[in-house]
Amino acid sequence: MTRTVLTVDDSRTMRDMLRMALAGAGFNVVEAVDGEHGLEVLSAHRPDVIITDINMPKLDGFGFIEAVRVDDDYRAIPILVLTTESDPAKKDRARRAGATGWIVKPFNPEKLVDAIRRVAA
């Protein structure tokens, strides 16, 4: 079964990069441009894994993760956050919000797929 990954990032470049890496690894990719949009796409596509940026307009990554985690239907979905640099404070805050793991940008496709494998059943 093809697994679906939801990517949430306001940067078109980053969404394209993620799509390229994920589609190349056989994932089905759905995209959202910010946290609010992400919650909408979530309900429509029920992804197996979520990858989200932190700095986004409307609803940022922290808020998005928290919203996913309080929803009984979705709180078991693994969420990977994209951090631009290994910023410990940001990473910790994302983890407190409920992030499952993280991917340090810039990522390479193998590392990305690796991270998904580690969190996805």
Partner: peptide
Amino acid sequence: PVAPAPVAAAPAAPAAAKTQQIDV
């Protein structure tokens, strides 16, 4: 740790039409 398996009933998706529009 986690809630019981997701109920099969699909959640209400009022914004389904909008979500089709991926690249806003």
